[in-house]
Write a protein that binds this DNA or RNA. Structure first.
Lengths: 342, 342
DNA sequence: AATACTTACGTAACCGTTTGCGTGGAGTGG
DNA sequence: CCACTCCACGCAAACGGTTACGTAAGTATT
């Protein structure tokens, strides 16, 4: 049942015939209250649906019970899934989540953080923050509690952050293609400045090195992770090369979907004539045809892990590790196969 | 630049040599302050990065500047897109958004609302609330400000809510199939108790009525909007009927995707042997092959419209309409075609 | 020039909770 | 029986703003 205006502590105190101080102590579990009075007050609070005034409490204690999450775009499945994981933990911890989207704009991100300090949050989760490493570091040193998910740059200062094992995942994807017998592997990367892009690139290089091969610069294209038709043009261009690649590794699923469509446009059969691999394991990966081979990221777990670290940080415990990397996993579907011999 | 602890009004007052009351009046634009003092104080506040303590203000005024949004699941594209629209408006209004997911659980929804009253929010956006009409009505009468998006039941009481034109959209989809020459149209609906399901069903009936036809009960199956393989089994079953339908209308895109996969499993060509229509225009709708014909919902606009109504409600204005319906639009892609003659 | 009115500001109460400190009474040990 | 401790509770001061009211100047009115 939903109840309207709730009583205040003074109301309870008056009814119970005690002072507000006693009510406060009784309800917050603090010592200095007899068992009898405590139960009486507790029951009374139940009956009247007493909830407590959060702002008064926050004003008094300095703790708001709120944690903020900033992210570029909610409607992006990638961020939404991380957010969902974090939201669950935050909810279970009895905290509330305040959300701010930055739309990939740096000033907006700064504003948001500024806003949080003002609004008073106990801590924050920063998804793909646009701040420079120096700024983030300064913020951390100022005593503000936060954890970074999927940083833009590699974080060197000692502060908590979580990512997926981007390099390892990309390496596994590349190895998968190599195992199938591919030699001409093309890459369509995301924004080159992003840490995740660099890591994935690194992973691919590692795999090729191990196989005694190297990346053909002509087959490496940069795209964007979230553009409207990201990957499509690049893939089309690659497929129309005189000596086209036998496999295309899109650095996220959106890019891979673009490549899939490009293959369709260019009337190149997937996976018979070209194999396509993505990254993320978006929902649509299993819906497209052929179903996309991709690297699964534990997005929800990334969110929940970060949130857990944050709650530890807030409660004063040092979190277990400063940098937590969550394992990625190669998911082989139908978009990859051995190359045809020519 | 990011700044740490900000000064309080007393600090400013001391420095400026005035009282806190004057500082408060100066900064909040209230009358009773000379132009000179006001500019002096304003400049001082700028310099010191004064932001004001939100909880203190909230405690004093009763206004928190926060608005809450409840929704079943963030990771569902449908809700995420509505949320994104709402978030933009809330941000632009200088308010902050506190998010609560209900995981489709009624007690959790109630708790959430209870929580909001306690935490103190100025209003709320309720997406697909599980409360009964009576409860929602009681909540509204209690003076709590909120607007409902996509209600579970039809709302009869005078309170603000927004939906898409579900009936009209479904009618257009059905008409599209009829125009192509389909006579055996199957339906895979969402949860039967949902208002949107009923409306869409209604729209289809309307279209058939107008064409002098009626729905074959054997071709109407109920599924769920968000199950894991929702629509797949139902579609498979339909396609294996002795006299299978020539078209399947899935009541959302997820269901349609399931149908698409079922057609693939059953080796029934789409759209040559069976046409498939969805509802929502999810991102993946253009990625599947064949690209899905579907009814686009203005999700982002639904969110922003609702948020705008709420801000009006909070500021005391009656919103323009109690019930705003946003137009849906049929998007014809490749999954529908004229039926083959037999 | 006396009166009334306006303006600019200070004073203090208030929002609802937490918490350090004081106090009376019960319980304990000698 | 007295001092001492301890317990359960009340008092009151914070926390950082907002705002009704009071008041001293300055301005307008007659």
């Amino acid at each position: 049942m939903i109840q309207g205006d709730s009583a205040t502590m003074q109301d309870l105190a008056r009814i119970a015939g005690v002072s507000v101080a006693t009510v406060s102590r009784a309800l917050s579990g603090k010592p200095g209250v007899s068992a009898a009075t405590r139960t009486a007050i507790t029951r009374l609070a139940q009956e009247r649906g007493f909830a407590g005034n959060q702002q008064a409490r926050a004003l008094s204690t300095g703790q708001t019970g709120r944690i903020a999450v900033t992210l570029p775009r909610i409607e992006a499945e990638y961020f939404a899934r991380i957010l969902a994981g974090a939201a669950q933990v935050i909810h279970d911890a009895g905290l509330s989540l305040i959300l701010e989207t930055t739309q990939h704009e740096a000033p907006r991100q700064s504003d948001a953080i500024q806003q949080f300090l003002k609004l008073g949050v106990d801590g924050a989760l920063l998804l793909l923050p646009t701040e420079s490493n120096r700024e983030i570091s300064a913020l951390y040193d100022s005593g503000f509690k936060f954890v970074v998910i999927d940083p833009t740059d590699q974080i060197t200062a000692p502060m908590p952050w979580v990512t997926a094992t981007n390099a390892m995942g990309a390496q596994r994807a590349a190895e998968h293609l190599l195992e199938l017998g591919h030699h001409r592997i093309a890459l369509i990367t995301g924004e080159p400045h992003l840490f995740s892009t660099k890591e994935r690139l690194h992973g691919v290089r590692e795999a090729l090195d191990n196989a005694g091969m190297s990346l053909d610069p002509a087959l490496v294209r940069a795209s964007t992770y979230s553009g409207p038709s990201c990957g499509y043009e690049q893939a089309l261009d690659l497929l129309r090369l005189a000596d086209p690649p036998t496999a295309i590794f899109g650095f996220n699923d959106r890019i891979a979907f673009g490549a899939l469509q490009a293959a369709h446009t260019a009337k190149v059969a997937v996976p018979d004539s070209v194999s396509i691999v993505g990254f993320d394991d978006a929902e649509a990966a299993r819906l497209v045809s052929p179903a996309l081979t991709t690297v699964r990221q534990p997005l929800s777990t990334m969110g929940s892990t970060a949130a857990t670290m944050l709650t530890q940080l807030i409660s004063g415990q040092e979190p277990l590790g400063m940098h937590i990397q969550l394992a990625t996993e190669l998911v082989v579907r139908r978009s990859t196969a051995a190359p045809v011999l020519r």
